[in-house]
Simulated assay, not measured.
Amino acid sequence: MLGAFFDDSGTHAGSPVMTIGGVLGTEAQWDVFAAAWAALLEEPLPGKRPLKQFHLSPCRAGRDEFENYTLAERDHLTYLFRRVILDTGLVTVAAAVDNAAWDELVTGDAAEELGHPLEFLLYQCLNSVSDIVRWRKPGEKTWVFFDEGIRDRVEMFAYAYLQNNKDRPEIASVGFAPVSKVIALQAGDMIATETSQFGQQWLLDRENPVTNPHFESFRWRDISAGLIFDRDAIAEMVERVKAGPPSV
């Protein structure tokens, strides 16, 4: 049995990019991950108090549990938690949309067909997990968990996905849990946040996006899967909806 854990980023009003990102691994990998991540939470850096959770955005900003950390300390701590994901060999999966383009273009029948961008991203991530498992671990089943914070917005859609996508048996179940209590979701938070910030830069300059150095290790791995739906991609989807199903 495999496990995949996803968090979201950029779901607040005015965010330029909305993202769902997460990590996928085997039971053995999750056992190794849990021990290493928990050890870092207990002793993040010499002389620092144990952390309740690792949350990338507050760490970057020096807020909450990280307010007494210097910039260098926060950067090193991010490196240490990032290495846990990489050293464990977890697959990373993410999908992002241009929020402004979605709000402008996805209206009327297209909105009925494509749904809320959060539902769309969940759909893309579940499909990516299914494709990866089918390719790398054929025949395996995957339990997928999302952050409890989006449950009220996507729960019905997630269960409809399970009912209507019988051709994707790799997805055995979809559930929800709080990031603060499930450390695997904290890894999902890192991937979602990094992807959201990269997506913003990519929309500004596709040829030479300003990339956070921590994201580079994820971006170029052969076991990382990421999708960004920009204005052109969204417009193409809307046109397909308007055109209707192909005539036979």
Rank of each mutant, 00 (worst) to 15 (best):
F66R: 04
A95G: 07
P16G: 02
P169F: 11
A39C: 03
G89F: 05
R63G: 09
K48R: 15
I150P: 02
H12L: 12
F157L: 02
T142M: 07
E104Q: 00
A172I: 06
P138C: 10
I132R: 14
M190Y: 08
N165C: 10
V23E: 06
K141N: 11
A96S: 15
G47A: 10
V93C: 07
I85R: 01
A177V: 04
G175D: 13
A187R: 01
V97L: 03
L227Q: 13
T195K: 13
E104A: 00
L80D: 09
E148L: 14
D98M: 00
F6A: 10
E207M: 09
G199A: 11
L71K: 12
A96K: 02
V238K: 00
N127I: 09
G139F: 13
T107H: 00
V179Y: 04
T70E: 05
L227P: 00
A4V: 09
T26H: 08
F120A: 06
A184P: 01
E239Y: 03
K141T: 11
D7W: 11
G188W: 06
Y161M: 09
V210D: 11
E216G: 03
D131M: 06
Q200T: 07
F229W: 10
E148G: 03
E155Y: 05
R136S: 13
R136E: 15
H55C: 04
I223Q: 11
A243W: 01
W30G: 05
G139W: 12
K141C: 11
A233F: 00
R231Y: 01
E42Y: 03
E112R: 04
G175R: 12
V129A: 07
G108L: 01
L204D: 08
R240L: 12
I85K: 02
R60T: 03
M190T: 12
R153E: 13
M156L: 13
D109E: 12
F54P: 00
S196E: 12
T19R: 07
A111H: 00
G22I: 09
A225Q: 13
R153N: 12
V93W: 04
E65V: 02
R219H: 11
D147H: 09
R60S: 05
N208M: 06
I150T: 11
V23T: 13
A172S: 14
V182G: 03
P58N: 05
R82T: 12
G226Q: 14
F215G: 02
G22M: 09
I234H: 00
S128M: 15
E194A: 12
P16T: 03
A28R: 14
N208H: 15
K242L: 06
W202K: 07
D75K: 13
I85Q: 01
A192S: 14
P44R: 08
W30L: 08
G175M: 08
S224V: 04
I183R: 13
L118D: 03
C59A: 15
M18T: 05
L227D: 08
F176Q: 05
F176E: 05
R240D: 07
G10Q: 09
Q186G: 07
G244S: 06
A96M: 14
E236P: 00
V106G: 00
D189W: 10
L227S: 12
P46D: 13
T78G: 10
M190D: 03
E140D: 15
I191T: 04
G108T: 04
C59R: 02
V17K: 01
T19H: 07
D64I: 01
E119N: 15
L51H: 04
F157S: 15
Y161D: 05
